[in-house]
Design a protein around this nucleic acid. Structure first.
Lengths: 244, 244
DNA sequence: CGAAGGATTGATTAGTCTCAACGCAAGTGG
DNA sequence: CCACTTGCGTTGAGACTAATCAATCCTTCG
């Protein structure tokens, strides 16, 4: 990625083509405060007060909740271009944590900068709303995934979603992509145990749907994987918004 | 509920006290187009294009997804005062359906009315953002609930959440409230089967935590229920926003 | 009175978890 | 440069939660 804001442009461009003025506005907001942080660290923890909007520029991160007895649910993955909740600073405290999976660079956008951005461009405002609505839709899909689908379908779905999203921001090379998650992470994201993830992955490999090793995934049979997952990408709303 | 918009006022007032001007603005938006619809009907179905923002005035509704093989995941419950996604009309099509559980009255707010309302009052705009962020937080909690908790904990959680939310809009009488869901609905909301819901409810009753019959719930041991659920209401963000 | 929807119960099975061990590769310190 | 540690993936055996299938009961309502 040659330029820090590139993934963000691509992310929002899924909703609407941005003008060069829009892009400048975004780049300015994203350039103000850039941070780098190592893998497996919290960017912000449950209970803290959110003061800024974070935008992921490179690396992978996750949203998660930890229960008092140690159980952890990963709620979503952040890939470059993703926003960690527009306007979160309205809330008094975080109800979950955001942590890194790899080394990560991210931009902090202050409340005033964020609001300024929304005042300056209706197109950006709508794109941010779109992004927020898609975040919600993804969360609903995860609820459905965990609530209704079998272990096999769940994992298939996860790979379908990640492939689609990574593709969007130019981080998938055809049907393959770098995949920094451990089987334990995958377990906590899908509501299963690491042992069962392991066995289910073997099944997916045996069925020739995916190839996963060395932190790299290749979807060897995209159509088969989609079918196994009953994957319907409508919830990603990549068809371009209504108001374009 | 003496007045149609009352639940909405109470809902938003959880974030910030509204001025009488704000209240008038809301009432006007909510009075423009009010509809009534019977139980077990769709208000809007997956695949349709959303054109308005719906606000529930009375009755219960749900958000759900239906898989091609008939499995259904209920994604959230709507009670009076709830908004069905601010700015949804930005999206090209619904990725899920919204259906009623009881007879329902709801208001349709057009895109222009909605945008007008946000332009007129920053307080309302923020309250709507708050509401949207809470919707997201609730969805995350449901993901966690289904992904990490046992059947027993899941149901306990559901009752804790509903009690808290109903209380907010004045629909809980102490620790009890009307509860129009069937065990089958509860099953589809928690990712279990109706049979297992039945058995788990019996356990909750035997443990003296709740009393459920005739479409009415009484939480007989609120503290016990919260403990069993490991219920932490922080995700409802009822502490009042930061910017008050 | 009969029909229908929902709640309840029982018996059996399947899917997933638990616990425990082992393998492998990469990294670290002496 | 080797011994040790550590993190992650893999395997096996057994236990248990929750699903499945099917029957029965209860209540409500036309």
């Amino acid at each position: 990625m040659s330029q820090p804001g590139a993934a963000l442009h691509l992310h929002l461009a899924a909703f609407a083509a941005l003008s060069s003025a829009d892009r400048k506005l975004l780049d300015a907001a994203v350039a103000r405060k850039v941070r780098t942080i190592g893998p497996r660290k919290d960017i912000i923890s449950e209970g803290e007060r959110p003061r800024v909007v974070n935008v992921l520029l490179s690396g992978w991160a996750m949203r998660y909740k930890q229960l008092s007895d140690g159980r952890r649910q990963i709620l979503s993955f952040f890939i470059p271009g993703d926003l960690c909740d527009a306007n979160v600073f309205i809330l008094g405290q975080m109800d979950h944590s955001i942590g890194t999976l790899t080394e990560v660079t991210y931009a902090e956008i202050s409340a005033t900068d964020f609001e300024h951005m929304m005042e300056c461009s209706t197109r950006i405002t709508k794109a941010l709303w779109w992004s927020e609505l898609v975040t919600l839709a993804v969360q609903r899909e995860w609820t459905t995934n965990i609530g209704q689908r079998s272990a096999y379908e769940r994992l298939a779905n996860m790979f379908c979603e990640l492939l689609a999203r990574l593709h969007l921001v130019g981080l998938a090379d055809g049907n393959s992509f770098d995949f920094p998650l451990t089987q334990n992470d995958l377990a906590d994201a899908t509501g299963m145990t690491a042992v069962h993830v392991n066995r289910t992955l073997q099944q997916l490999r045996r069925d020739g749907l995916i190839d996963l090793n060395n932190r790299h995934v290749t979807v060897t049979d995209p159509e088969g994987l989609k079918a196994a997952a009953q994957f319907n990408p409508n919830y990603l709303h990549l068809d371009g918004g209504v108001s374009n």
